[in-house]
């Protein structure tokens, strides 16, 4: 099955040919990277369980004109190595790409293994571009586009088990910094990112049965955020917004959208945010955890009904 995770390896192995300065680094997370490792062993670096050194080494490579990709589990890359990401990579604006899994309540590893604060942390960093992707084909496209970027980028994935191809190749223009209207609608907009896009599309399909026309926006770039699209959706869907995400409800996409709304003085009729509350979430399968913590399919449908009904 095509998963976002497997696409990392195939895409990097492909790009290794075009870019002889592309390096791949990992702190002992490499199953998906074997294609690159086998093809370019001299540009593959596994430092073992040492996230801080891994990001620092990547920065050292980038200072010397290389394009390093660090791949690993995001809870550790985004938090244990946060200072290296901030001071070694973002401060000198080096083209280091951080790509990883376990964004959100996924993988049933418990709270040590869920990256749920990562988008808030990464969006806070000057020079960092921040993305969250659920569609495997998009992962390849974003990695390819990122190769010519000057500064750093963070690419967040879930775990790959339940990844769905959402868009046919060529169906949407995929451009870093631009949101995708995954489904058209006029009554309300659901903004989301990552694997939750599939859930939002299911919610919109369900709501259509009751005659509701719900737009779904895949805001896969959280920073820089697509301000124009937010303004456009406010104008075209009655100022009715639902934001759903597999991240803390505060600090992620909902906060990014709220900032744009406040800064630009956009008039909204209703605004609801669904995401992880300030709890350590515990064990369970992805959907069970989303339901338990109030941002699953049923909650998304209910929230959308409420914003549509709002006066």
């Amino acid at each position: 099955m095509l998963s976002a995770r497997s696409v990392i390896g195939t895409t990097l192995a492909e790009l290794g040919e075009d870019y002889d300065n592309l390096w791949v680094l990992t702190p002992d997370i490499g199953a998906t990277l074997v294609e690159f490792r086998d093809k370019y062993p001299e540009r593959f670096v596994d430092v073992g369980l040492a996230e801080q050194a891994c990001v620092g080494v990547a920065a050292g490579l980038a200072y010397d004109g290389n394009i390093p990709v660090v791949s690993g589990m995001l809870p550790f890359l985004s938090m244990r190595a946060l200072e290296q990401v901030r001071s070694d990579v973002c401060y000198p604006n080096l083209p280091v790409k951080i790509i990883g899994t376990h964004g959100g309540l996924v993988g049933n590893g418990g709270s040590t293994h869920y990256a749920v604060e990562d988008l808030a942390l990464m969006c806070a960093l000057t020079n960092m571009t921040v993305t969250s992707i659920g569609d495997p084909l998009m992962v390849g496209e974003v990695i390819r586009q990122s190769m010519t970027m000057q500064g750093p980028i963070y690419i967040r994935l879930a775990v790959g088990k339940k990844d769905k191809v959402l868009y046919e190749p060529g169906e949407h223009e995929i451009r870093i910094g631009k949101g995708i209207i995954a489904r058209q609608g006029t009554d309300a907009t659901i903004f989301t990112h990552g694997t939750v896009v599939a859930q939002a599309l299911d919610a919109a399909a369900e709501l259509a049965k009751d005659g509701h026309s719900v737009r779904v926006v895949d805001m896969f770039t959280l920073k820089p955020i697509d301000e124009e699209l937010i303004a456009q959706c406010a104008a075209e869907t009655g100022g009715r917004f639902v934001i759903v995400e597999d991240h803390l409800a505060y600090g992620g996409l909902a906060s990014r959208v709220a900032d744009v709304v406040a800064d630009r003085g956009i008039h909204l009729t209703a605004f609801e945010r669904l995401g992880i509350p300030q709890v350590y979430a515990g064990f369970g399968e992805d959907e069970e955890l989303r339901d338990k913590h109030g941002y699953g399919l049923a909650a998304t449908i209910a929230a959308t009904q409420r914003v549509i009904a709002a006066a």
Partner: peptide, 19 residues
């Protein structure tokens, strides 16, 4: 390199040496 926070120089140097 931009340095200041301690413990960052050696990882950076490893990257440059690998390069």
């Amino acid at each position: 390199a931009s340095t200041g926070s301690l413990g960052h120089g050696l990882p950076l140097a490893v990257g440059m040496a690998l390069s």
